[in-house]
């Protein structure tokens, strides 16, 4: 059983917490820097990236989290989480954790009226089709040489991995399908 942290500043962290529990692992909603020591990996949930970025700074969590990720802790960013991890934001001068070698465009699809869902197979994650929900979603516009592209939609990268870091533009936690979370759990070191 793994202890999976979910950053609990703001956003849809409860949905991730329930999914982790459904798969028989132990979730921990993380709000304090010290809690980073208790977890095997961390999910950065969907929500507002500006809100979460500011709270990372104000709570003193930014630096210890960055170090944890650099030293190999598995981390998965969904939507806003992807923005927090990116080294470059195309339409925003403020970079947050800046650990993953990707450039990201925020609100890439437009406002809420342009939110959508679609289905597709992400071979690295599952042979089965999964539903991908995009809510005012970002996408990746540039990837570094170490980044593995997991899925492209209409020519834009919406899922990628670089070592211990996984990002998805969409929200698997809003659907019943847990294959993305199962894939993320394979990134955890054994014991």
């Amino acid at each position: 059983m793994k202890k999976v942290g979910i950053l609990g500043f703001q956003g849809a962290f409860l949905e991730h917490e329930q999914a982790v529990r459904r798969l028989g692992h132990e979730p921990l909603v993380v709000r304090y820097p010290g809690e980073l020591e208790e977890i095997d990996g961390l999910i950065l949930p969907g929500g507002e990236s500006t809100t979460m970025g500011k709270l990372l700074n104000r709570t003193g969590m930014m630096e210890p989290l960055r170090e944890k990720i650099k030293s190999g802790m598995p981390v998965w960013g969904t939507c806003a989480g992807m923005i927090l991890l990116a080294k470059e934001l195309e339409n925003d001068p403020v970079v947050h954790l800046g650990v993953m070698d990707i450039a990201v465009r925020r609100n890439a699809y437009g406002s809420q009226i342009d939110s959508f869902s679609t289905r597709g197979v992400i071979p690295a994650i599952s042979t089965k089709e999964l539903e991908m929900v995009f809510i005012r979603a970002p996408y990746i516009t540039k990837v570094g040489s170490e980044v593995e592209v997991l899925y492209e939609l209409d020519g834009h990268v919406v899922a990628a991995r670089e070592g211990n870091m996984l990002v998805t533009s969409f929200h698997p936690e809003l659907t019943e399908n847990t294959s993305c979370l199962e894939y993320f759990l394979t990134m955890f070191p054994e014991n």
Binding site: G8, Q10, G11, A12, F13, G47, E48, T51, I135
Partner: peptide, 10 residues
């Protein structure tokens, strides 16, 4: 409804 979920805790 999903967008509202993203606002939670805010």
């Amino acid at each position: 409804k999903n967008l509202a979920q993203m606002l939670k805790g805010g």
